[in-house]
Nucleic acid binder design. Structure first.
Length: 435
RNA sequence: UCCCCGAUAGCUCAAUCGGCAGAGCGGCUGGCUGUUAACCAGUAGGUUGUAGGUUCGAGUCCUACUCGGGGAGCCA
């Protein structure tokens, strides 16, 4: 009976056929331990001399790492085996004998691993991370559909910049130039006026010359946009959203979190409501720690937070924290100023706990056409390119709000990783575009 | 874009003051009946990133370049 390793406990004491690859081999003269992976999991196969054909025993000694094999064996519960189950081998067929495999069971440098990303994906750590990423993606889709959001696919080729042109990738497009999308938001705003509640989910591109553990040039963004929603409404939506995803990963990907040695007690605390502080309160927090001898440099009201301040603020909370109402001059043209204080805009950043930093940025959008036109002019953005966007204010404008979540930053935090590049199958960074 | 660091065997790294280029892993050969990145013995494996310079002598010092890593700013 054909089986997958992921479901092997369903086949206790039964004979199964597994199609996979030889992950590792340990041998002890008259007994071989083959660690087999089939993409769904890993399992140890035992081959004892005298209990199988002499030919099979000899063959097992010669199979190289990562050779593809189809094996038949009996499933047995075994406390000594990693995973709790092992297979007593009946027969084995080598489909493709592998050449000497470049990746070893010992430590490698990051340059070598990234150059061999197509093979590295087979190893346990990347395998666990990408499976958690998949669970996050499924959760995103399930969450929004359970709340009757429509998935709206924003274009990748865009004629204009959303927030300036310096970070855009320019590509030739017949006789003109277009840019790779760095956000689906403006299209999302059009979508929410047509469908009320929408979300976009797709790859976005930023040509930022950033060389940090938090940046990719190609990353996936989720951007819900809701008609008639105010800032408080989308903060509620955002905390429900993040909570739902984290709890789903905890429910369905325990094994993978354990492989990554993630402290799940921290994740178990991630439940609504999250903390909410204003930008002004955050500035005060930073000042206060400095007065009492802290090392984080203080900022004046009006400065944007740097990495040390953001890390400090997030580290003061055991759950993610919303920082809302930033100074108007720090933020994008489409954000609506707070009617109670026009020095600040109705925006919010969600900072993940443990110093992982910003995972969400959102705002209530400016719905007034005169105010928006003024902002576009002030920031020197091309008016013609934004005409269709201004139409959204001409024809039945309403308050509306949305946010953007970076998938890879979320996965980095959930997995407790050091670097964002491990959360995407084939990372694109400033100086690496292959494999 | 700016600052810092690195490049030696297939991989991870040593090499004292400028003085014979070395180990572990992986490969190959042999041994081992419960291994967990198995272990033990033997063995092959090198244009020290590239170009130039200093020196009796350069992996080591100097200059430039290439590639990579870490961080800042900016951002998700």
């Amino acid at each position: 009976m054909k089986a997958y390793i992921e479901k092997i406990s369903d086949y206790k004491d039964k004979e199964v056929e597994i199609s996979g690859w030889l992950y590792n081999k340990r041998s002890s003269g008259k007994i071989h331990f083959l660690e087999i992976r089939d993409g769904t999991g890993f399992i140890q196969v035992v081959v004892v001399k005298g209990q199988v054909d002499e030919g099979i025993f000899e063959l097992c000694d010669k199979i190289s790492q990562e050779s593809s094999v189809v094996i038949i064996g009996k499933v047995r519960e075994e406390p000594r085996a990693p995973g709790g189950y092992e297979l007593d081998l009946k027969s084995i067929q080598v489909i493709g004998q592998a050449e000497v495999y470049p990746l070893q069971k010992k430590e490698h440098g990051i340059d070598f691993l990234l150059s061999n990303r197509h093979l590295w994906l087979r190893s346990k750590t990347p395998w666990a991370i990408i499976r958690i990423r998949d669970e996050v993606i499924r959760s995103i889709i399930d969450f929004f559909h359970s709340k009757d959001f429509i998935k709206l696919d924003a274009p990748i080729f865009t004629p204009s910049a959303c927030e300036g042109t310096t970070t855009l990738f320019e590509v030739p497009y017949f006789d003109q130039k277009v840019y790779l999308s760095q956000s689906g938001q403006l299209y999302g705003e059009a979508g929410c006026m047509a469908f009320n509640k929408i979300y976009t989910f797709g790859p976005t591109f930023r040509a930022e010359a950033s060389k940090t553990r938090r940046h990719l040039t190609e990353f996936w963004q989720i951007e819900p946009e809701v008609a008639y929603a105010k800032l408080d409404d989308i903060m509620e939506l955002a905390e429900q959203f993040v909570t739902y995803i984290v709890q789903r990963v905890l429910a369905n990907r325990q094994k993978e979190l354990k492989m990554l040695e993630r402290d799940v007690t921290i994740l178990e605390k991630i439940k609504v409501p999250f903390y909410r502080i204003s930008y002004s309160e955050a500035i005060e927090m930073v000042k206060k720690q400095s007065v009492s001898g802290g090392e984080v440099p203080i900022l004046q009201w009006g400065d944007d937070f740097g990495a040390p301040q953001e890390t400090y603020i997030a580290s003061q909370f055991d759950k993610p924290v919303f920082v809302h109402r930033y100074p108007t001059k720090c933020k994008a043209f489409y954000m609506k100023p707070d009617p109670e204080n026009t020095e600040v805009v109705l925006c919010t950043d969600l900072l993940a706990s443990e110093g992982y930093g910003e995972i969400i940025g959102g705002s209530q959008r400016e719905e007034n056409i005169q105010a928006l036109e003024k902002k576009i002019e002030k920031e020197g953005l091309p008016k013609e390119a934004h005409e269709w966007y201004l139409d959204l204010r001409r024809y039945g404008s309403v308050p509306h709000s949305g946010f953007g979540l970076g998938l890879e930053r979320l996965v980095t935090w959930i997995c407790g990783l050091h670097h964002i590049r491990e959360t995407i199958p084939f990372p694109r960074t400033i100086d690496r575009v292959s494999p």
